[in-house]
Deep mutational scan, measured.
Amino acid sequence: NTCEECGKPIGCDCKDLSYKDRHWHEACFHCSQCRNSLVDKPFAAKEDQLLCTDCYSNEY
């Protein structure tokens, strides 16, 4: 699979995080606004962007 954020392949030695058929490296899986990691945290998706709950609450 190819990472949505950096565009590089996700190798066998990396954790592949996925959501709705989109894939990310663990280090690339972060909020589109504040850039905080979303690994093991709740998040929301809006208009193809992933947002942490704080940024989502502030926007919507």
Rank of each mutant, 00 (worst) to 15 (best):
N1G: 02
N1W: 05
N1M: 08
N1T: 05
N1S: 02
T2G: 03
T2W: 02
C3A: 00
C3L: 00
C3T: 00
E4K: 11
E4Q: 11
E4N: 08
E4M: 12
E5H: 14
E5K: 08
E5D: 14
E5G: 14
E5S: 08
C6T: 01
C6L: 00
C6R: 00
C6V: 00
C6A: 01
C6Q: 00
G7R: 06
G7D: 03
G7T: 14
K8F: 10
K8Y: 04
K8V: 05
K8Q: 13
K8G: 07
K8P: 00
P9M: 04
P9C: 00
P9F: 01
P9D: 02
I10Y: 01
I10G: 00
I10V: 07
G11K: 04
G11Y: 01
G11Q: 04
C12Q: 13
C12T: 12
C12V: 12
C12M: 14
C12N: 05
D13Y: 07
D13F: 05
D13C: 09
D13L: 04
D13V: 05
D13S: 05
D13T: 06
C14T: 14
C14H: 08
C14G: 13
K15I: 03
K15E: 04
K15S: 06
K15F: 05
D16M: 10
D16L: 09
D16Q: 08
D16P: 12
L17D: 02
L17P: 06
L17T: 12
S18H: 08
S18F: 07
S18I: 06
S18P: 07
S18L: 12
S18V: 09
S18W: 02
Y19E: 07
Y19N: 08
Y19F: 09
Y19M: 03
Y19C: 01
Y19D: 07
Y19H: 08
Y19T: 06
K20V: 06
K20M: 05
K20I: 05
K20R: 09
K20T: 06
D21P: 00
D21G: 10
D21R: 03
R22L: 11
R22Q: 14
H23Y: 08
H23Q: 06
W24V: 01
W24Q: 04
W24H: 01
E26Q: 06
E26H: 05
E26P: 05
E26M: 08
E26K: 13
E26C: 03
A27C: 10
A27Q: 14
C28T: 04
C28V: 01
F29P: 03
F29C: 05
H30T: 08
H30C: 09
H30L: 07
C31A: 03
C31K: 03
C31R: 02
S32C: 11
S32N: 05
S32Y: 07
S32Q: 10
Q33S: 10
Q33G: 14
Q33L: 10
Q33Y: 04
C34W: 00
C34Y: 01
C34P: 00
C34T: 01
R35D: 14
R35I: 08
R35A: 08
R35H: 07
N36D: 08
S37A: 11
S37M: 08
S37E: 10
L38P: 02
L38I: 15
L38Q: 01
V39T: 11
V39A: 11
V39S: 11
D40Q: 13
D40Y: 04
D40H: 09
D40E: 14
K41H: 12
K41W: 03
K41M: 10
K41I: 10
K41D: 08
K41Y: 03
K41N: 09
P42W: 11
P42E: 15
P42D: 15
P42F: 06
P42Y: 09
F43N: 10
F43Q: 13
F43M: 14
F43W: 15
A44I: 05
A45W: 11
A45P: 13
A45M: 13
A45I: 03
A45V: 13
A45D: 09
A45H: 15
A45L: 10
K46D: 15
K46L: 09
K46N: 14
K46W: 07
K46T: 08
K46I: 11
K46M: 07
E47F: 06
E47W: 03
D48P: 06
D48C: 07
D48T: 09
D48N: 12
Q49G: 09
Q49R: 09
Q49T: 13
L50T: 08
L50H: 02
L51V: 14
L51Y: 11
L51F: 15
L51N: 06
C52H: 03
C52P: 05
C52T: 04
C52E: 03
C52Q: 05
T53M: 08
D54W: 05
C55S: 04
C55I: 02
C55V: 03
C55N: 04
C55L: 02
Y56S: 15
Y56E: 15
Y56H: 12
Y56M: 14
Y56G: 15
Y56R: 14
S57W: 02
S57M: 02
S57A: 11
S57R: 09
N58L: 09
N58I: 06
N58S: 13
N58Y: 09
E59L: 06
E59M: 09
Y60R: 12
Y60F: 12
